[in-house]
Design a protein around this nucleic acid. Structure first.
Length: 231
DNA sequence: GCGACAG
DNA sequence: ATCTTGTCGC
């Protein structure tokens, strides 16, 4: 007899449960355990149909708002939005950012009725003290290609990229290239792009540039940021 | 020891 | 992240 079951959610994940880390040591161990599972070698899709931007907003009393906005990659038209409000399950600790933002983001992703081809995260991926930032973590948990885009530098060193839109400079950490400072608007401060999962750095930057036709911040993240502030 | 530190 | 005025420029 067939097992009765409802529609499978288009994006599934390991929901934060009893195994969710409660201490810094546990969280760091979890990053070390998952790091080998991140795909940093695939060039990734050069073209995508649906792109999702993700961001988390903060309310009083340790409440967080996870927001996801799915856009048509070609037109940048909004296809679907999802928001969730919940209690924060981890404090903000630089380097362990994912454990604070992952729960609301996964919950929001789970509400989608479509499956994005690419996730653009607000934060870092490979450019991380243990090479496993939010974008890598989200990619491993969902299995979807991810890119990390941060607004401020976090680790490593980088030169000031030339002023033209599209110009970039490498972010180096311990002699390795872990990302790029990418200029998405002429004469405006660059954004910091790093690999998450299943997308190469060249492709990641090409996607971010196309997704930022008018503003410094890529459209998917701008939309998600707006939604996280106006649930 | 002290400062810095994605959001 | 969030608390916050005015100002310069497209």
């Amino acid at each position: 007899m067939l097992k009765a079951r409802g529609r499978m959610a288009p994006v599934t994940f390991h929901a934060p449960g009893p195994h969710w880390p409660a201490t810094v040591a546990e969280a760091e161990a979890e990053q070390d355990r998952l790091r080998p599972l991140a795909d940093l070698d695939s060039p990734g899709p050069a073209e995508v149909g649906l792109v999702a931007g993700l961001d988390v907003g903060y309310l009083d009393d340790d409440e967080v708002v996870g927001a996801v906005v799915v856009l048509d990659a070609a037109s940048l038209a909004v296809v679907e939005r999802a928001v969730v409000r919940q209690r924060a399950s981890f404090p903000y600790v630089p380097g362990l950012f994912a454990f604070r933002e992952l729960p609301p983001l996964l919950a929001a992703l789970d509400k989608l009725s479509v499956r994005p081809d690419l996730l653009v995260c607000d934060g870092y991926g490979l450019a991380h003290p243990r090479r496993f930032g939010l974008a890598c973590h989200l990619g491993v948990l969902t299995g979807l290609p991810t890119i990390g885009v941060a607004k401020t530098p976090f680790v490593g060193e980088h030169a000031e990229p030339p002023p033209a839109r599209g110009a970039w400079s490498a972010i180096r950490l311990d002699g390795e290239v872990v990302g790029r400072a990418l200029r998405t608007r002429e004469g405006v401060k660059p954004v910091f792009v790093s690999q998450g999962h299943g997308v190469g750095l060249d492709n990641a930057c090409a996607h971010i540039l196309r997704l930022s036709p008018a503003y410094r911040i890529p459209e998917p993240i701008r939309q998600a940021d707006h939604l996280s502030r106006h649930p």
